[in-house]
Amino acid sequence: MLICENISKTYKKGSFFSKKEETKVLNNISFQLQEGRSIGFVGRNGAGKSTLMKIILGLERADSGSIIFMGQNIHNLKYSQRKEIYKNMQIVFQDPQSSMNPNMTVFQIICEPVNNYYKYSIDELRNIVKDLLKSVELDTNIIDKNITMLSGGQQQRVAIARALAIKPKVIILDEALSNLDMVIQSQILKLLEDLKEKYNISLIVISHDIRVVFKLCDDIIFLENGEIKGNFNVENGVDMENTAFQKMLVF
């Protein structure tokens, strides 16, 4: 479904007068995401995980390589043409507070993606939103509350509901669980596992916590300084001797 080949990315830093410094963020990353499977990326902060996510979404351009999502190369499309891609690929960010407009209510937030693709009346929309809130195990009477009135865990659930709203095939979780405390983290992990089964969604999980990734994913890639250092799948298990794996095995 998603095929990435030889993605490389270099950031150039430095002002007009000084010498430009180059840092290689991603080096020859290739992977495939098959239908019905989930893939996870593990690595330290600064290993290039977030940059990879932005490149997959087309928010940043790779220097070389190609990203083919459902037969289309996302970087050859103009912004207005990407709509069809985003219909099947949604994202949940790390920090729920910043990823939702603080001036909006829960209803407005979840409606935004729906309104981009379908035309519904207000009553239909309210029913859709209520169903979505139920499916992420939230109370439906928060529908008209401002997003800032909710707790961190509830906000992240709303973000997940928003990602689910247009029934995408792929949801990207960019450290979506790291800022939550432990109990809420395990609740949302369980929710994600259930939703994955229920809607048949593939997840792309980006995290520094191997427990999260191992719980949700079928394929796992270890990244270190922008390079792939280990590539495992659930059928063959993990090579316990792999240094990148051992390094991340902290908690």
Binding site: L57, L59, Y79, R82, K83, Y86, K87, M89, Q90, I91, F93, D95, S98, S99, M100, N101, E112, P113, N116, Y117, R162, I166
Partner: peptide, 11 residues
């Protein structure tokens, strides 16, 4: 992030 998110929703 909410502007990025909204870009990713095809708005």
């Amino acid at each position: 992030n909410y502007v990025l998110a909204s870009k990713c929703m095809g708005t």
